[in-house]
Write a protein that binds this DNA or RNA. Structure first.
Length: 363
DNA sequence: CAAGCGTGGAA
DNA sequence: TTTCCAAGCTT
């Protein structure tokens, strides 16, 4: 392993020791943190900003202090703890991963690339991050931050992802380093605070002396951005059914959008041209009334516009015995907050509660 | 390999 | 307002 000439690794680490953010999953510089904490934080941080992750991480670690605790938890509890964080396959994979770590590796996270990659939800990035940060191995995890830093440092004008493999190899050229875990975190902090996607702060960058994009005035044109894709708009009716036991909810299928999460019954989510406003998709026959207004939500690939229908029922208990409604159940309003309700469904709750006075007076 | 998969904050 | 996008993984 040969470090490329001129890479100012000492300046980078000095910058990190001075500027680094204090985060609950981080050890002091040069010390090695709990691999379980590293894993939980790295998965939570996938496509998610630090500020969002912090409260979830603290709750999660307090609830399940060790990987064996997580492995013994009901998946429903894990999803409830993840509610609002998004990309819920991460939570399902984490639970499966915890079981594998306990079954196959004696509740200790493995150190080898192949073993780590065999675990659910651990890909190339997370594997390398665990090896570098938790175990101090000589490896650079390549996330979007380090990818951006690398293409700028080497002034690579070829658009990603065709050059992804080359970028990954060039990033390894930042090694060897006496503190591989701190190097990884220093690069990610640099990407978040200095070498930002837009308007990078090159004047205060500890890598400026070796940066090809800086010396060639290419910092604002690299990296080249990819083509944008069109978003679609879908429409849905959602049904808020109250009984003496609470509000009717059900669990979504374990795969796909919001997999395994709790939802209020709804009809199909369709294009406006296929959408018919009304209660024809309702879970039961009842006196449905439509709440005023809509609930709006943006997913990654489409916007969702929801109308909410509400009714009361007496049919409490028998619901769970009907095969087609096998995963349906009533939840009292006070317990809704503990359900695995994703953000879009919490908007439904807020909307229904905001209309509550209307409902009571109507009987 | 491109698409699917959440959410909220910044510009 | 709209667009971008943030410590990616899976299929």
């Amino acid at each position: 392993m040969t470090q490329e000439k001129g890479f100012p690794v000492d300046q980078l680490l000095s910058w990190y020791d001075c500027e680094r953010r204090v985060l609950p999953w981080r050890a002091m510089p040069g010390e090695q943190p709990d691999p379980y904490h590293v894993w939980v934080s790295e998965v939570m941080l996938q496509q998610t900003v630090v500020k969002t992750v912090i409260p979830y991480f603290l709750t999660f670690i307090r609830q399940w202090p060790r990987v064996v605790d997580l492995s013994e938890a009901p998946i429903r509890d894990v999803l409830a703890s993840w509610a609002g964080l998004g990309y819920y396959a991460r939570a399902r994979n984490m639970h499966a991963c915890a079981l594998s770590v306990c079954d196959q590796f004696g509740a200790l996270f493995p150190e080898s690339s192949s073993a780590l990659l065999s675990l659910p939800g651990i890909g190339l990035y997370t594997m390398a991050a665990i090896r570098a940060i938790a175990y101090g191995h000589q490896i650079v995890p390549v996330d979007s931050n380090i990818e951006r830093i690398t293409v700028r440092y080497h002034a690579i004008e070829t658009p990603l992802p065709s050059v992804k493999q080359e970028v990954h190899e060039l990033a390894q050229g930042f090694l060897p380093c006496s503190r591989p875990g701190d190097l990884a975190q220093a690069l990610m902090d640099l990407g978040a605070m200095v070498c930002t996607p837009r308007n990078p702060s090159c004047a205060s960058c500890p890598l400026q002396s070796g940066c090809a994009a800086w010396s060639r005035s290419l910092t604002t044109t690299i990296p080249h951005k990819k083509a944008k894709k069109r978003r679609s708009v879908l429409y849905a009716s959602v049904f808020w059914l109250e009984s003496s036991k609470g509000v009717l909810v059900r669990s979504r299928p374990n795969k796909g959008l919001l997999g395994g999460m709790t939802e209020f019954p709804s009809g199909a989510w369709v294009e406006k041209t296929l959408f018919r406003s009304g209660e024809q998709d309702a879970p039961v026959r009842a006196e449905w009334s439509r709440l005023p207004g809509h609930v709006y939500h943006k997913f990654t690939h489409f916007d969702l516009i929801i109308e909410v229908w509400r009714a009361k029922t007496d049919i409490d208990v028998k619901f769970s015995e009907k095969s087609s409604k096998a995963c349906s159940r009533f939840v009292c309003k006070e317990a809704l907050e503990f359900e695995a309700l994703p953000s879009v469904m919490r908007k439904i709750v807020a909307h229904a509660f905001s209309c509550e006075p209307n409902f009571l007076s109507g009987g």
